[in-house]
Amino acid sequence: MNTAAPVPRRSALDAVEAALPKIVLGPTLLVSLVFVYGFIAWTAILSFTKSRLLPNYEFVGFYQYVTLFENERWWVALKNLCVFGGLFIFFCLATGLILAILLDQKIRAEGWLRSIYLYPMALSFIVTGTAWKWILNPGLGIERLVQQAGFPGFTFDWLVNPQMSVYTVVIAGVWQSSGFVMALFLAGLRGIDDSVIKAAQVDGASMPRIYWSIIIPTLRPVFFSAVMILAHIAIKSFDLVMALTGGGPGFSSDMPATFMYAFGFTRNQIGLGAASAMMMLMTVVAVIVPMMYAEVRRNRRG
């Protein structure tokens, strides 16, 4: 306990004073227990009920989960999450790392360039989606631009093409988030001890080789946190899809988050929406827990 010396006769005021830290922390703890843990439990319960328009606490076991995995739209959403998540993470990491390495070459206008790469992070995904929806507009957007540049047969209709719509989300998502990954990598590069690199140079190692076998491996923790953050963004991605494609055409670019919103809030299938939300939570847990475990174990081994 934190009181310095036990005072023989404590007044009530002292007792309050001693308990103050707990009193101050109490509301947040309560909020967290009710609105995070309690609500997760509540959603879990809903996912085992028949709830449709209104919550209904008649239990039906795993019925909603069975329905969920029999739903073609849910499978499309899962497939899209894999495609989007994989490409989004890969391109953000690649762009971020390359930009960080290039920026680390004692560049004159580094501050300016960094600010330019990072400003999309200040924008709402809705704004990003709106801008890219216009740029990718079939007819008036990039398609028209390339046609006017002398390729009249050029078509670029990914936004309205069910086969390709999910890739437009990748394009906009990478534009928005890769600058942030660059900032993470740049901070990592700046933290590396120069002497190791100088020693390798003295040994005659070429710079690309030094990057590949010394610098990039030491950035491992940065890769780790970047992948965690990007995976988290991917699983939660909702705004960008809503603004850019609305999950369409049809439901070809649906993701779990848009699926959950559609069924839980606009199609009056609360039970099914709850089941899909639980699956999202489990996906986050499935991604984050093993990664953290592996990282902690690795750190312990040294």
């Binding site: 609105f35 995070v36 839980g264 939300a277 999202m280 939570l281 986050v284």
Partner: peptide
């Protein structure tokens, strides 16, 4: 307690939407 609270940073908010609406 701090660790307990931190979980709030990780959850996808979809998992609290329905109870919160109610």
């Amino acid at each position: 307690l701090f660790t307990t609270m931190l979980v709030g940073c990780f959850i996808p908010f979809q998992v609290v939407l329905l109870p919160m609406a109610q």
